[in-house]
Simulated assay, not measured.
Amino acid sequence: MNLSLLWIPVTLAAAAAQTGRNATQRRLTEQIGTVGATQVRFLYGFPFALLALAIVTLITSETVPGPNAAFFAYILAGAVAQILATALMLSAMRERAFSIVTAYTKTEPVQVALFGLVLLGDRLTPATALAIVIATLGVVVMSVKPGTSLTSGGVRPVLFGIASGAFFALAAIGFRGAILSLPDGSSLMRATTTLVWGLGLQTGILLVWLGLFDRKALIASFGAWRPSLGAGFLGALASQFWFLGFALTTAANVRTLALVEVLMAQAVSHHFLAQATTRREILGMGLIVGGVALLLLSQE
């Protein structure tokens, strides 16, 4: 197997795990609220990240790489950016439909490509850039339903949605930068080490925030520990694969291929919720598949 293409199955595994985590978190939202359900991915995912690092260390006999100043800067930026992205996304969803906000936030691959070029020097071929645009356009087509408009809800949700995508993009760049800044270790070891630091920082930040401003949600998340364990496990599993993907290739490649998550979510809705697929959604899915196919064909 060509190891340079290992990021492809790794990213597909991450998208599948994230689809499962999203479904679990959706059920938790009904029990403990949006903020409480959001933070369980970090609080209950962190122990699984520590377990993963212990297993990787045991299997590979590698030493856990020590962090440096660049690593701290990147991992802190990535952790905070991901929290801000989630908060902005939830704020946008309060004012606009989920599908419309998805169209805003899924501009992330385009923004990842731009930030990756500026901050990390990750260059793209013309074919890869075209693939990113086509796949992103497919998400927009799927998300905008007949009779709706991307701008009909006013300026605030537009700005919040696009800013959310920008912070998700910065989070991806921050995590990839942290992985690349570690001096030693295999891709797996560096990715897992970064995962532990990232989830640890996010857990600490959110515990302090909820303790100060939303103790009710914090207490509720502890009370719902059994279903939260499932969300935490799937979240940590997805992040493990995302980070390994970031260690193997550019964040733009990973986040573009990750758009297949939209297709997975559509399949889940069709199967479990008996929702029919419209012609517009079929067109959007075709664009996503076409963009992803071009992305894969453009890889050397």
Rank of each mutant, 00 (worst) to 15 (best):
residue 88 L to Q: 05
residue 89 M to L: 14
residue 89 M to W: 09
residue 89 M to G: 02
residue 90 L to I: 12
residue 91 S to F: 08
residue 92 A to K: 06
residue 93 M to E: 01
residue 94 R to W: 00
residue 95 E to K: 13
residue 98 F to K: 05
residue 99 S to T: 15
residue 100 I to M: 13
residue 101 V to R: 04
residue 106 K to H: 08
residue 106 K to E: 04
residue 106 K to P: 00
residue 106 K to V: 03
residue 107 T to F: 10
residue 109 P to Q: 04
residue 113 A to K: 06
residue 113 A to C: 03
residue 118 V to D: 02
residue 119 L to S: 09
residue 119 L to V: 12
residue 120 L to H: 12
residue 121 G to L: 13
residue 121 G to Y: 15
residue 122 D to S: 14
residue 123 R to Q: 05
residue 123 R to V: 03
residue 124 L to S: 12
residue 127 A to E: 08
residue 128 T to M: 14
residue 130 L to W: 11
residue 132 I to M: 03
residue 133 V to K: 09
residue 133 V to T: 06
residue 133 V to G: 07
residue 134 I to E: 01
residue 135 A to L: 04
residue 136 T to C: 10
residue 137 L to S: 08
residue 137 L to Y: 06
residue 137 L to K: 00
residue 137 L to A: 13
residue 141 V to R: 03
residue 142 M to C: 07
residue 143 S to F: 04
residue 144 V to Q: 03
residue 144 V to D: 00
residue 145 K to D: 10
residue 147 G to D: 08
residue 148 T to Q: 09
residue 149 S to W: 01
residue 150 L to Q: 13
residue 152 S to Q: 14
residue 153 G to N: 11
residue 154 G to R: 10
residue 158 V to W: 05
residue 159 L to G: 09
residue 160 F to D: 07
residue 162 I to D: 01
residue 163 A to P: 00
residue 164 S to N: 11
residue 164 S to K: 10
residue 165 G to F: 10
residue 165 G to S: 05
residue 167 F to I: 05
residue 167 F to E: 00
residue 168 F to K: 04
residue 169 A to C: 09
residue 169 A to Y: 09
residue 169 A to N: 06
residue 173 I to H: 03
residue 175 F to C: 04
residue 176 R to H: 10
residue 178 A to P: 00
residue 178 A to V: 11
residue 178 A to E: 01
residue 179 I to S: 00
residue 182 L to S: 07
residue 183 P to I: 04
residue 183 P to A: 15
residue 183 P to D: 13
residue 185 G to Q: 07
residue 187 S to N: 11
residue 188 L to N: 00
residue 188 L to V: 04
residue 189 M to L: 10
residue 190 R to Y: 01
residue 192 T to L: 07
residue 193 T to M: 08
residue 194 T to M: 01
residue 196 V to K: 09
residue 197 W to V: 00
residue 197 W to N: 01
residue 200 G to N: 10
residue 200 G to R: 13
residue 201 L to S: 02
residue 203 T to G: 06
residue 207 L to W: 12
residue 209 W to F: 14
residue 210 L to Q: 08
residue 210 L to F: 03
residue 211 G to N: 15
residue 211 G to R: 15
residue 213 F to W: 08
residue 213 F to T: 12
residue 214 D to L: 07
residue 214 D to S: 15
residue 214 D to G: 10
residue 215 R to Q: 14
residue 216 K to L: 13
residue 217 A to T: 06
residue 220 A to L: 10
residue 222 F to T: 14
residue 223 G to M: 05
residue 226 R to Y: 05
residue 227 P to G: 14
residue 227 P to C: 14
residue 230 G to D: 07
residue 231 A to I: 11
residue 232 G to E: 01
